[in-house]
Structure formats: structure tokens, C-alpha cells
């Protein structure tokens, strides 16, 4: 049923630390690796060895530059996947009931055998978290590795999403946001975790942690040293500068 549950028992999701992420794209690859051979249809690639390769990915890393006033710009690597929103617009638009949010843990999933591939859910998502697979013609999205996190055939340390398990920088954290004492809830509270595009009213579960403040170096303004320093020119050049100034 594509009506959203009024509340969910757990609110499983991710915390992504924009301060720690180094932009290595390991989460992108491990996500594709796990999800192409487990839950649902594989994640196809088109023209994989040709001139214009492209494929279905459930997680992608963008890199942004933040230009600050009176300070050096900051580069922020920005992994983006489904935010498992509490008020998920992608779920309610689905005409077949293929798209749903689970009452027990809040994960937003697609039942691929019910998906007609109309693409309306991808339109409804402001974050670009859903991609239609070009080969299977069904909608693919992050499952929060639903086939890992409860999988008792895996060693306990592997029962978390592939992206979290693989992140070499420890920039991704998985947990239950409904529990105020969970690792992810405490991280969000301590570091000022925020929502993406709150004005869209989607109430995302996943939170992002802002980059920490940068150190300031106690030296004179280095940028100004790059300017041509004609007033300090000596000798012949100094004379030439003064003479040309007087003209």
C-alpha cells in the first residue's frame, strides 16, 4: 500500500560526515558490488567499455566547493543516496503499490515485481535517489542493504550497509534514529546534523554532519603577497616605476 505509515517502530538510516569523507568513491563501488548480485534486479551498465559508459548506481559522490568570505574555499565531498524520508513523496505517487515504506524499520523499498517502470517516483524525489535500470526497466534505489543488516549468515560486523562497512575514513554511520541514545542520534545531536532541502518537507531520516571549522594560520595576509609589489621596487626598476608614475 503506497500510503505512508503514521510512524515506524525503528527509523534506520545513515549519518554521513562531510568533514571526514575523503571522496574516494569506495562506498559507490561497494554499494554497486553488493546490490548488483543480491536483492532484486542487477544494476546494469550501458556501453560499459565504449565511449559513453553509464550505469545504475544507488549511491553517488558529488564534490562541491564552498567559497567563503575572508577565508580559503573548502572542498566538500558529498555522498548522496536515498534518505529514507519519513514523508517520502516517492511512495505516495506510486500507482501500483510497488513503492513502500516499512512500518517496522522505516526503510523505503521497491517491490520490483509490482513496478511498472513509469518513473513517477523518480520525478517525485527531490534528491535524485531513484534510478530506473535501463536493462531491467524497474526502479532501483538504496535498500539500506536490507539483505545484510538482518542477515544471520553474515558475521556480525558485516551486518551493516555495504557503504558503511567499506568506508575507509569512517565517514558513514548506520543506526536507529528512533532511539535517542543510539550512536547515530548522539552524533547528530553533538555535531549539528542537518537535513538536505528541508524546504521540500520530506523529513529525511538520513542526516549530514557539517565540515568542522578550519584552523586559522596566524600569518600576514598571504593573498596580498601575490599582487605585484611595485612600491617596494628598488634600483633601476624603482626609478622606472617612480618616473612612470609621475608622467
Amino acid at each position: 500500500m503506497t500510503t505512508l505509515p503514521a510512524s515506524t517502530q525503528k527509523k534506520l538510516g545513515l549519518v554521513i560526515d562531510l568533514d571526514t569523507c575523503v571522496g574516494c568513491h569506495a562506498c559507490v563501488i561497494s554499494c554497486k558490488g553488493w546490490n548488483t548480485e543480491n536483492y532484486g534486479a542487477p544494476l546494469s551498465d550501458m556501453d560499459a567499455y565504449g565511449g559513453e559508459p553509464e550505469g545504475t548506481f544507488l549511491n553517488r559522490v558529488h564534490s562541491f566547493e564552498v567559497a567563503r568570505e575572508d577565508a580559503a574555499p573548502v572542498v566538500v565531498h558529498f555522498p548522496k543516496s536515498c534518505l529514507h524520508c519519513d514523508d517520502a513523496p516517492c511512495v505516495t505517487v506510486c500507482p501500483t503499490g510497488a513503492s513502500y515504506k516499512r512500518t517496522e524499520d522505516g526503510i523505503v523499498l521497491v517491490n520490483e515485481s509490482d513496478c511498472i517502470g513509469c518513473g513517477l517516483c523518480a520525478w517525485a524525489c527531490p534528491y535524485g535517489a531513484r534510478e530506473m535500470d535501463a536493462s531491467e526497466k524497474v526502479m532501483k534505489k538504496c535498500t539500506l542493504c536490507v539483505d545484510r543488516i538482518y542477515n544471520e549468515n553474515l558475521p556480525e560486523e558485516d551486518r551493516e550497509p555495504a557503504c558503511v562497512r567499506t568506508c575507509p575514513a569512517g565517514a558513514r554511520h548506520f543506526g536507529d534514529f528512533a532511539d535517542p541514545d543510539s550512536h547515530v542520534s548522539r552524533l547528530t545531536a553533538e555535531r549539528g546534523g542537518f537535513d538536505l532541502m528541508p524546504e521540500q518537507g520530506t523529513k529525511p531520516v538520513n542526516k549530514y554532519l557539517p565540515p568542522r571549522g578550519r584552523d586559522t594560520l596566524d600569518v600576514p595576509d598571504l593573498a596580498s603577497l601575490c599582487e605585484p609589489q611595485t612600491d617596494q621596487a628598488k634600483g633601476f626598476l624603482g626609478w622606472l616605476d617612480r618616473a612612470l608614475e609621475r608622467l
Binding site: 558529488h62 564534490s63 562541491f64 566547493e65 567559497a67
Partner: peptide
Amino acid sequence: LGKVRLLE
């Protein structure tokens, strides 16, 4: 933080 633009 400042003005954000896509770098990559």
C-alpha cells in the same frame, strides 16, 4: 558556510 558550487 558560503557560496556553494559543483566542483566535480
